[in-house]
Design a binder for these strands. Structure first.
Lengths: 345, 345
DNA sequence: GTGAAAGCGCTAACAT
DNA sequence: ATGTTAGCGCTTTCAC
């Protein structure tokens, strides 16, 4: 006769906290009923629900989402990856997608890839290891390895803030080349004939720079190369000041500067003011992003508005739709941009 | 005779991905050996380790941290709670604690409590539900309910950016009253006799305001109440402009303004410039935080430097020590602050 | 509408 | 140094 081996130790419960089973015992129902009371309350009788909720309240029970995620294969976690949280440019997007996803019952984890994309791969392991229900990435994921692994993991991916005909999965953004070109056309229309650039050295700023340069070459006829200063991303007020200074020193005749971000533009504005260069009469300054301060600088900053909130909302909506198994018609959404004219031009 | 019931279905594997067991089979070892190869490789023979690593590489296996966390009762997750990511004030702290914790093998989840603390409790459920190994909170947790639940959950907690004799658990910060007083003394020493305040309406700004007001009353002798404008947190350049405007309109004789944040101060600087008020000769302007732009405004901003990086590092160190079971001698760390004199005063 | 049984993928504890 | 066993706390599937 086989004797049942009595467990030597009483489990290895760690948290010391309440479990679903504890609540079930207290409410006089089975564990699964407590689970239903929490996740699908409409399945239960008002009476049963009542009993369970009382027990939950009494114990202060908080469901363990690690366990829930493991069992259901739905972590209710979404990763949002930004180049750096130090850049306010993507703030609207992050706020919007966070609030949209939280309403839908997800939590958002913020990850930083760094502008150079070096951390991208190690970050990816951390991400895949958490088995998120989605990944929202600011920028196109260029690393082939990264694209492959995300696809292999079967995680829904939304790339944002850029455009490409070949996204991993879903995409919501706009064309940076076109934005740069629009700035060139705008500045030209306002009389700029000797333009210069102060640009961050990241990928998307490069696209805007390229769009700007090409359009200007078209408008002005190909002449001398355009004065250009590159500054390191993430940009700061200092970038703008140290960017404009040598430009004014070496090319005192420039009449307009396209800054690849509003923060740079604010710095350029400051430097101009410190040197007594009049804006916009002597020098027109234009930024990019339409951050909250752009309308309140002195003079107010002409810039390019991107609807970061809409990007975030759409990205979140993509993830939610996918999680619900709904079909997605258009996986690529172009949200465009707008030139906002203010006093600095 | 009892017949063994044969399982009807073959599991319910979800992710479709590799599991530890798959890798073990491929490497010809037991699952636990694979686990050890990943977590405590020094326990294995070079040979075994080699075999396992080859199998991992071949399969592209990424461990499921949900499962690992559940089994080990260590989620390797730390929550960092800030009032809002829209405020750059805590950025240094967040960067520092993130990099420190990532080096130690943790991931950091950023949560927003909102300046009014309304979301604090619902946020808490989300947090406790993930069973993090620690919580780092910017500011004191005032809600009694919140304090109780965190304690009950047994999660290590570090409160930061403030001081109190009764923290929940661990604390690293500085005295906002003293900082306010230091600003008052500094401005007085530079000749300010008719000071005013533009302050955010959040708790810690209130403490600074109070320290400032009391110290000024001591220095000037109690006279008329000090002109004061409250603006809504999070603050922006606009807060500073709309804050200073009515102050100058109604009290044209003020000779100094203490702004509760550098962003407000930058706005005040802008408004002064727009109105042709000379800084610092007519009006001294002082901020708080020493953000990256403070040294580069025109004129450069006098402010109070807080070592946000040190706060973040110490907070992270607390969590890591606690996780390792190391004893902690001083649970309260006062990191102080420094007045940084620049051109705006 | 409610419950019993099984198992998600991993690791702690106990062998060997 | 490696393996065996028994869960971690929850949800799925199927049965009633």
């Amino acid at each position: 006769m086989k004797v049942e081996k009595k467990p030597v130790r009483k489990g290895r419960r760690g948290g010391g906290g309440m479990t679903l089973a504890d609540v079930a015992r207290l409410a006089g129902v089975s564990p699964i009923t407590v689970s239903r009371a929490i996740n699908t309350p409409q399945q239960l009788t008002a009476d049963t629900l009542q009993k369970v909720q009382a027990a939950v309240a009494r114990t202060g029970y908080v469901p363990n989402r690690l366990a829930g995620g493991l069992a259901s294969n739905r972590s209710r976690l979404v990763f949002a990856i930004v180049p750096t949280v130090a850049s306010p440019v993507f703030l609207e997007t992050v706020q919007a997608l966070t609030s949209t996803l939280e309403e839908a019952g997800y939590e958002v984890v913020l990850g930083q890839s760094g502008y150079d994309g070096r951390r991208e791969n190690e970050l990816l392991d951390a991400i895949i290891g958490r088995r998120p229900d989605g990944v929202i990435h600011v920028g196109i994921i260029h690393s082939k390895e990264g694209r492959r692994r995300l696809t292999a993991a079967g995680i829904p991916v939304v790339e944002t803030w850029d455009l490409t005909p070949t996204p991993i999965d879903m995409l919501v953004g706009f064309s940076h080349e076109k934005a740069g070109a629009a700035v060139a056309e705008f500045l030209y229309s306002r009389g700029a004939r000797r333009p210069a650039i102060i640009s961050a050295d990241d990928y998307r700023a490069g696209l805007r720079r390229q769009g700007f340069t090409e359009a200007m070459a078209r408008l002005l006829g190909k002449g001398a190369p355009m004065p250009c200063r590159l500054v390191t991303a993430p940009t700061s007020l200092a970038s703008g000041r140290t960017g404009l200074a040598p430009l004014l020193d070496r090319h005192p005749d420039i009449d307009a500067v396209f800054c690849s971000s509003d923060v740079i533009a604010q710095g350029a504005l400051t430097e101009a003011q410190a040197r007594g260069v009049a804006v916009p009469s002597q020098l027109k300054i234009m930024g990019f992003g339409d951050l909250d301060f752009a309308a309140h600088t002195h003079p107010a900053l002409t810039t390019v508005r991107v609807d970061g909130t809409a990007i975030g909302r759409q990205a979140a909506a993509f993830i939610v739709q996918r999680a619900r198994g709904e079909p997605i018609e258009h996986r690529i959404v172009d949200l465009g941009f707008t030139v906002v004219e203010r006093a600095s031009t």
